[in-house]
Design a protein around this nucleic acid. Sequence first.
DNA 1: CATATTTCCTGCCTGC
DNA 2: TGCAGGCAGGAAATAT
Length: 301
Amino acid sequence: MPELPEVEVVRLGLLPAMSDAVIRGVDVVDRRALTRHVGDTDSFEALLRDRRVVSVARRGKFLWMPLAGDATPEQALIAHLGMSGQLLLREVDAPRERHERVRLVIDHPMHGEVAVVFADQRTFGSLAVDSLVATLDGRAGGWGTEASSVPSQVAHIARDPLDDAFVDAAFTLEVRRRRSAIKRVLLDQTVVSGIGNIYADEALWGARVHPETPSDRLSVRAVTRLLGDVRGVLHRALAEGGTSFDAQYVNVNGQAGYFAHSLSAYGRTGLACPRCGRAIVRVAFTNRSSHFCPVCQRMRR
DNA sequence: CATATTTCCTGCCTGC
DNA sequence: TGCAGGCAGGAAATAT
């Protein structure tokens, strides 16, 4: 499941291939991959053809590639991987991927022609061409861009916890203002972006916080510690190339990440808590699951 | 207004 | 062996 570390690994892989490359070919194999695109398939193709990619940027789980040109406002190709989306670099004549949805052929001044394949089993991911809007705080839109702008479809998403412009005090205030379970708040991309089910469970385990704890019951100290654990687990996962749990997530070369071996709670139902040895439990949480240690993460009054 | 639930999708896995 | 049902879950849409 691509969350911030996995999306960042993809960004880092695309960066040398796509920066300064010109999009020469656009082949939409399955138009469901364009659910975020306002306009039809033809407009998607026309907006991309012969445009030069300036950079590869990311905020939370969103990727975007600003496009050179005279368009005002400026435009970008945006990508969200959803649950199972992959962006793969392939030879131009490589056979179709199993779940290939879109193929771009790009021409790089140093590397020549390369195919950028968007494949997505469960079709929750999508690509689009979107216009850029100014950031509210005037800071850079996210990692990988100096420009103080983000795609309009990313504007309502909060900055992620690795972003220099993330404001810890505002996050703490917002968490303690909310009245739902802390895990819900961590997953709310308008509060903090980039966290999904895996890293929410891991960060809560690290901070010894029960996932159902009402977020307005957490002290400033507890929220601060939790934010530290969020950052810690995101950094460690990034250093190990991300978490490849069900073989859906791979980097641009099709390789899995190693962080699944380092998980403490997520997916470890019935296995020993690495801290206290008690079995990790799994409970239903909306339409997904929470994994936590019933001893280390007791709910406190 | 804030918060909670439903919806979209495919493939793997389990149990009968 | 086949088949139904559960499960994985990001985020927009819809409901409370």
